[in-house]
Amino acid sequence: MKKIFYLAVKDMKIRLKYKFVWINMALTPFFIIGPYVFSSRIVEVNSLAESVMIGALLWYWLNQYFFGVGDGFTEEREEGALISVILSPVSLLAFLLSKSVDTFLMNLYITFFTLIFFNLSGVKLEIHLLFFLLLIISGVYITFFSIFFAALSLWKKKIGSINSTTQFFFGILSGMVNPVEHFPHYIRFISYAIPLTYLISIGRNIMKNENGSNFISQLLILTALSFAYLIFGIWLLRKAENEIRRKGEWETW
């Protein structure tokens, strides 16, 4: 735990050196989510804009975890620092978890500014304590979901564009803009295998002030699914690690 904390602090200290990163992080999510939220506002139905905003916001959290954790090895690899990470007494999983902590803190920063900018643009979203708890849970579960991608990136070296494409697929299939109930049943089958689907659905239920019992079952399925992805991710990570050790490819990309 201490190692994870130190590594996360290291990442944050590096980021503090670069001022433009903070400006970019504060503004970019508004512009990425904006087209979906403003499109839904065209029909002058505020509840639709709110619903899309919840979906898009949670999708953006996934987006950041897929870059932060899923693509977590790339920066160190390109800078030639990955070998130092490997030599240090930190497991690859702990290294990825430190990236997750760093991403979580950045996501809080991002969410704060995104909500302010949307509020100024007339789309108001009241954040309940339950929704804030959901964001924390989403951080943990989407980290679990991202680990298999980190293993793929370790193995295949450069899969940035696949990462971006996958994020969009997950967003669309999880009901980021349209509830999954609107999809044909064979697509819904895929949707229900993505943790984000449950997070978005729970998020929308919370904002509608629905009874907690409505989403307890979804939370249980989400937990089981996320742990299954964690086990699969760790297995794939070990496999990729062993393959790279066998080929001696830590310093190539």
Partner: peptide, 21 residues
């Protein structure tokens, strides 16, 4: 492998809006 993903990105960017409509 990095090329395959890029092929779909522009289409996927607009797909959520298309679905919304």
């Amino acid at each position: 492998i990095d090329w395959y993903g890029a092929f779909f990105t522009p289409l996927l960017t607009i797909l959520p809006v298309v679905l919304l409509y």
